[in-house]
Design a protein around this nucleic acid. Structure first.
Length: 271
DNA sequence: AGTATAACCTGTCTGC
DNA sequence: TGCAGACAGGTTATAC
C-alpha cells in the first residue's frame, strides 16, 4: 500500500531507531519474502553487523550494512513496527531492540545485494527518475512523457518516474488540471510544467504529514510506533467519487485504468 | 511495443 | 447472520 511518502516516513523513523545498532540475529518466517538468498545465508552474512544507513529508492527501503544491503519492498501490506503484529514475517534482532516486519498479504520482497553497484542489479536497475531528487528537472520529466499512453498509466510506471502510486498520481493530475486519460505526449509544455511541480509539492506535503492512512484495518499503513499518517485529510479526489469537487462543486468521478481506480473532476480536468 | 487480464494473498466492506 | 462479490496503497507473468 505504501507509496513514496509512506516509505520515506518509515525510512526516517527507522533511521532514528536502528542506524548504528548491531544486528545480532535475523529471523525469517516467510520464505517468499527472500528473492535471491536463503534465510541461512542472510543470517550468516549479517550476524553481528552494524547498520550503517537507512536509504530509499522509489518505494524501496534499503538497509545499508556496509558491504551489503537488504533491499525491501513493502508492496501492498508490508510495514515495520517496534512491536510484533498478527502477520510478522521477519524479526531483526538488534542489540537491545527488535524490529518486526509485518505483511498481511505476503507480497513483500527482500533482495540481498552488494552495496557497491547496487543500482545495476535487479530490482533497482530499471527504476526511473527519483521525483524528489536532483535529476528530476523539467526536461528529464518531459522526455519521459514521450509516449502515447494515458498519462495516469505513465505516472504509475516505475521505470519512468519511481515512487508515485495510485493515490499521488490521482492527486497530482488533479492539482495540475490534467485529465487522467490524456495521452502523455499530447500534454502542453505549460501543463507538463504544472504536473512536474504538482508531483514534487504533493509528495513533499504528504511526507510532511507522515503519509496517508486510509482506514484502520489490519495491514493499513502505520508509522513505526503505530501512529496514522495525516495526509488522507488533504485528499482532493482520491476516494471522493460521488462527492463535490472542492474547486467547482462538480461530482468527482471514478473510472478504471489498468485495473486500478482513478478519481478525477470531469470539469476541472479536461481532456 | 502496447495492453489487458490474471495472479500473488488476506482482509474488509457492501448488498442481497 | 450468511454469503457472494467488489475492492485495497503494488508489481509481474502471460497471453494476445
Amino acid at each position: 500500500m505504501p507509496e513514496l511518502p509512506e516509505v520515506e516516513t518509515i525510512r526516517r523513523d527507522l533511521k532514528k531507531m536502528v542506524v548504528g545498532e548491531i544486528l545480532e540475529k535475523i529471523e525469517v518466517f516467510e520464505p517468499r519474502l527472500l528473492q535471491n538468498c536463503t534465510k541461512e545465508e542472510l543470517q550468516a552474512s549479517l550476524q553481528n553487523t552494524p547498520l550503517k544507513a537507512m536509504e530509499r529508492r522509489g518505494k524501496f527501503l534499503i538497509f545499508n550494512f556496509g558491504q551489503q544491503s537488504a533491499v525491501v519492498h513493502l508492496r501492498m501490506s508490508g510495514w515495520f513496527s517496534d512491536e510484533p503484529g498478527k502477520h510478522t514475517r521477519m524479526i531483526m534482532h538488534f542489540k537491545g531492540k527488535k524490529l518486526y516486519f509485518d505483511d498481511t498479504r505476503r507480497f513483500g520482497t527482500l533482495h540481498f545485494l552488494p552495496s557497491s553497484d547496487r543500482e545495476s542489479y535487479d530490482p533497482l536497475k530499471k527504476l526511473g527518475l527519483e521525483p524528489l531528487g536532483e535529476s528530476f528537472d523539467k526536461k528529464s520529466f518531459q522526455s519521459v512523457l514521450n509516449s502515447s499512453r494515458e498519462i495516469k498509466k505513465v505516472l504509475l510506471d516505475q521505470t519512468k518516474v519511481t515512487g508515485i502510486g495510485n493515490i499521488y498520481a490521482c492527486e497530482a493530475l488533479y492539482q495540475s488540471r490534467i485529465h487522467p486519460l490524456k495521452p502523455a505526449d499530447e500534454i502542453s509544455s505549460a501543463k507538463v510544467g504544472k504536473l512536474h511541480q504538482a508531483i514534487q509539492q504533493i509528495l513533499q506535503r504528504a511526507i510532511d504529514n507522515h503519509g496517508s492512512t486510509l482506514g484502520d484495518s489490519v495491514g493499513d499503513y502505520r508509522t513505526l510506533d503505530g501512529a496514522q499518517g495525516n495526509f488522507q485529510d488533504h485528499f482532493q479526489v482520491y476516494g471522493r467519487h460521488g462527492d463535490g469537487c472542492f474547486h467547482c462543486g462538480k461530482t468527482i468521478e471514478r473510472i478504471t485504468q489498468a485495473g486500478r481506480s482513478t478519481f478525477f473532476c470531469p470539469s476541472c480536468q479536461r481532456k
